[in-house]
Nucleic acid binder design. Structure first.
Length: 259
DNA sequence: ATGGTAGACCTTCTA
């Protein structure tokens, strides 16, 4: 089973590009972030034609996540638990019922810039809620994948110039510590755990020639429970997508679970 | 040089 995560930066602005990629790569499951539309505006039929079941947690203009799967799923959860007043659509979860059930969560973790504002406070609170929810899910002792745009640079190797990002919400010591706390529940970064994985980025800003200069960062992650990590196969960053027509600023990451 | 681009959308916010 191949599981993809991709921040598409507007599903409707990107539909031709995204559909072409799905036709070529045909992942079994995909988590999409920043769809930037309400549920009713999501192009569900375009993916159903390709054989996907579709669940959407949308929002007008900003954020929004979707879960696509060729294998039927149940128990869909929309929204991250822990704050009934949170209006931002950044979390979707379901259980994929294939050869063996796999729980997949798709996340769009808040950016948090600028540091020192309520936006950074929201990011830290969201990460604390994610850790609390992940702690609950880990007690199930089942294959679990938390995939998405984490908006966190975990290590210096994940950024072209660490010094340039030290004050950024994606690379703050507190931000990195919160990601470490999440991983310390027993979650494994699929990319760094996979055999033969080389250093790679998943995001290049549209501005300042970041792509031609390869000024990238790795912020799109798939974290695996021990039961999922035991099944891990190849992990591929689809870097070439960034060079295509009307690209998202993020590229897809695909991880294989040998079910 | 505090720039640059992209997307949604009421003209500014978010990233």
């Amino acid at each position: 089973m191949r599981i993809a995560t991709w921040n598409v930066n507007s599903i409707n602005a990107r539909l031709d590009t995204v559909v072409a990629w799905f036709e070529a790569v045909a992942p079994d499951v995909a988590c999409l972030q920043e769809i930037k539309c309400i549920d009713e505006k999501f192009p569900t039929e375009a993916f159903e034609r390709l054989g996907y079941n579709v669940a959407v947690h949308g929002q007008k203009s900003y954020n929004g996540v979707a879960l696509l799967s060729k294998i039927p799923f149940e128990d869909v959860r929309r929204g991250l638990p822990g704050d009934d007043n949170d209006q931002q659509a950044r979390y979707i979860e379901a259980v994929i019922y294939g050869a063996r059930p796999v729980r997949i969560a798709g996340i769009y973790l808040p950016n948090g810039n600028p540091v020192g504002t309520e936006k950074y406070d929201y990011k830290m609170a969201w990460m604390a809620r994610l850790e609390a929810h992940a702690r609950d899910l880990m007690t199930l002792e089942e294959p679990l994948v938390i995939a998405g745009d984490y908006n966190v640079i975990a290590e210096p190797a994940d950024v072209y110039d660490p010094a340039a990002w030290i004050g950024d919400a994606l690379y703050q010591p507190r931000t990195r510590a919160a990601l470490r706390a999440l991983k310390n529940l027993g979650l494994t970064d699929a990319y760094t755990a996979a055999d033969g994985a080389a250093a790679g980025y998943t995001f290049w800003d549209y501005q300042a020639g970041a792509w031609p200069k390869n000024h990238g960062i790795r912020i799109d992650h798939l974290l695996l429970s021990p039961q999922a990590a035991d099944l891990l196969g190849e992990v591929t960053i689809h870097r070439d997508v960034r060079a295509g027509m009307k690209p998202s600023d993020h590229v897809p990451v695909v991880a294989e679970l040998k079910l």
